[in-house]
């Protein structure tokens, strides 16, 4: 009767195994440092343009939408606060993570998936390399370090975007905007804004690599793996975001 539950549970079990192995390998030798840096380049520097654009437009949209509401209360001078808080706490981490998930989880899944179906993974194992150590762990480390940095830059650009709207449409002075933007942030917000990307990055890397390594069924399998990786990493990002927000709000 519960047969339909078996495949998802099995999948989750496999995922836990793969993840724990990958996480454990972070501290085990050998360290493939050149692979780590290469991945950092691909994941971090490569995603910089789109995350900056996401930040920029999010900041502008937040300021625009809020300006109407604030004007009714005569509180336009607070637009800096609002843009700052929403970006640093929610929009920055979540949107950046979703975009990076789309870009990189799919990349990881398809790359590893193609390697799986052409037996390169087996070849690696036959030649004495732990595929998890060589393929998954560098991507994990790269994502976990790069995504918080990307988020910070996206937040910053977003606040600049908000300032752009504030000064052109609402006529705020730069000190009005920026002082309120800095002042409203608390350590709690910063912590949230950094822990979230860190957690999301781990999700992105593990889910992407998991579906990649598990690929079977030729090119179709690679396509499926890519889709699954993007969908599931995005969903888990949203879920974990809720949990982390809950923890921080009650902190």
């Amino acid at each position: 009767m519960l047969d339909f539950l078996k495949p998802p549970i099995q999948t989750f079990q496999d995922f836990v195994l793969v993840s724990s192995r990958a996480l454990g390998n972070v501290f085990r030798r050998p360290h493939y440092n050149s692979d780590i840096f290469q991945q950092m380049d691909i994941i971090g520097v490569g995603s910089l343009p789109i995350t900056s654009m996401v930040g920029w437009f999010s900041g502008i949209v937040m300021a625009l939408q809020m300006s109407r509401a604030l004007t009714t209360y005569g509180a336009e001078s607070r637009v800096g606060e609002i843009v700052s808080i929403t970006l640093v706490r929610e929009l920055g981490p979540v949107l950046t993570a979703l975009l990076v998930a789309g870009r990189n989880a799919s990349g990881m899944a398809s790359e590893l998936g193609s390697m799986k179906v052409t037996e390169q993974i087996d070849a690696m194992r036959a030649l004495g390399t732990d595929p998890s150590q060589k393929l998954v762990t560098p991507r994990l480390i790269a994502s976990a370090t790069m995504l918080p940095l990307l988020t910070i830059i996206a937040d910053c650009i977003g606040m600049i975007g908000g300032y752009f709207v504030a000064s052109t449409q609402l006529g705020l002075t730069s000190s009005e905007y920026w002082t309120s933007a800095w002042q409203v942030l608390e350590y709690n917000d910063l912590a949230q804004g950094l822990i979230k990307p860190f957690a999301f990055a781990i999700i992105i890397a593990l889910v992407g690599c998991f579906y990649g390594i598990r690929t079977s069924g030729g090119t179709q399998g690679v396509g499926r793996a890519t889709t699954n990786a993007v969908v599931w990493s995005s969903l888990w990002i949203i879920v974990i975001n809720t949990l982390i927000t809950q923890v921080f709000v009650n902190f």
Partner: peptide
């Protein structure tokens, strides 16, 4: 080259932080 780019990105972000 990758290390350089990564380093620049990290530096910018850490400065902002």
């Amino acid at each position: 080259w990758s290390q350089l780019k990564v380093g620049i990105l990290a530096a910018i972000a850490l400065v902002i932080l």
